[in-house]
Amino acid sequence: VSEWTEYKTADGKTYYYNNRTWESTWEKPQ
Rank of each mutant, 00 (worst) to 15 (best):
Y16Q: 03
R20F: 14
N19T: 13
Q30V: 14
W22G: 15
T5R: 09
Y15V: 09
A10S: 10
Y7A: 07
E23W: 05
N18T: 01
T21G: 03
W26V: 10
T5K: 10
E6N: 02
T9Q: 04
T14P: 08
N19K: 10
P29T: 03
A10D: 10
Q30T: 14
Y7T: 06
T14F: 07
K8D: 01
Q30F: 11
S24E: 10
G12P: 00
Y7Q: 06
T9K: 02
W22D: 15
Q30K: 10
Q30N: 13
P29Y: 04
T14D: 01
T21K: 01
T5E: 10
T25P: 05
W4I: 01
T5V: 14
W26G: 06
A10H: 12
P29M: 05
Q30G: 12
W22P: 02
W22V: 05
P29Q: 05
W4Y: 04
Y17I: 15
E3M: 07
W4G: 01
V1S: 12
N19P: 10
W4F: 03
N19Y: 09
T9V: 01
N18D: 02
K13I: 10
Y16I: 01
E3L: 07
N18A: 01
N19L: 10
T21L: 05
S24N: 04
K8F: 09
W4R: 01
Y16H: 01
W22R: 15
E27F: 08
Y17A: 03
G12H: 01
K8G: 02
S2F: 12
D11H: 05
E6Q: 08
E27G: 04
Y7G: 04
E6T: 06
W26N: 09
R20E: 12
S24P: 04
N18E: 01
P29W: 06
D11P: 01
D11W: 08
T25N: 05
T9I: 02
W4A: 00
Y16S: 01
T21W: 07
S2N: 11
E27A: 07
R20D: 12
W22Y: 15
E6H: 02
Y17G: 04
Y17D: 00
D11L: 06
V1I: 13
E6F: 04
T21Q: 02
Y15E: 03
E3A: 07
Q30W: 13
A10Y: 06
E23L: 04
E3R: 02
P29K: 03
N18H: 08
T9A: 07
T25I: 09
T25A: 13
D11Q: 09
K13R: 15
T25Q: 12
N19A: 09
E6M: 08
G12S: 00
K8A: 06
R20A: 12
Y17R: 08
Q30S: 14
K13F: 08
Y15M: 13
E23I: 07
N19W: 12
N18M: 02
T25S: 13
E23Q: 06
Y17Q: 07
E3N: 04
K28M: 09
S24H: 13
Y16M: 01
Q30E: 14
P29I: 05
W4D: 00
K8L: 11
Y7P: 00
W4S: 00
Y17N: 02
Q30L: 14
Y16T: 00
N18Q: 02
T25F: 12
S2V: 07
K13Y: 13
S24R: 10
E6R: 02
T5W: 08
P29D: 05
Y15T: 01
D11S: 08
W26S: 10
W22H: 15
K13C: 14
G12Y: 00
K8V: 13
G12R: 00
W26P: 09
G12Q: 02
K28I: 13
N19Q: 11
E3C: 11
V1E: 14
T14G: 01
E23K: 04
T14L: 08
D11K: 04
W4T: 01
N19V: 09
W4N: 00
W26M: 11
D11I: 03
K8I: 14
A10M: 09
T25K: 11
W4E: 00
P29G: 03
Y17H: 08
W22L: 15
W4L: 02
A10F: 07
K28Y: 08
V1G: 13
K8P: 00
E6S: 05
Y15L: 09
G12I: 01
K13M: 09
W4V: 02
S2K: 08
E23R: 01
N18F: 04
N19M: 09
V1K: 10
S2A: 12
E23F: 06
G12M: 00
K13E: 08
P29N: 05
E27L: 08
G12A: 00
Q30R: 07
W26I: 06
Y17P: 00
N19H: 12
T21N: 06
K13G: 06
T25M: 12
R20G: 11
T5C: 15
T9N: 07
S24V: 15
S2W: 14
P29S: 04
T21P: 03
D11T: 07
R20Q: 13
E27Y: 08
V1F: 15
S2T: 11
Y15F: 13
D11A: 07
Y17S: 03
E6G: 02
Y17T: 07
Q30D: 14
T21R: 03
E3Q: 07
S24G: 12
T21D: 05
Y15R: 04
G12N: 06
W22F: 15
S24Q: 11
Y7N: 06
N18L: 02
N18R: 02
T9R: 03
A10K: 10
S24I: 15
Y16R: 01
V1D: 13
T25H: 07
S24T: 15
Y7I: 11
T14N: 03
K28N: 10
K28L: 13
W26Y: 13
T9L: 06
E23N: 04
N19E: 13
T5N: 05
Y16L: 01
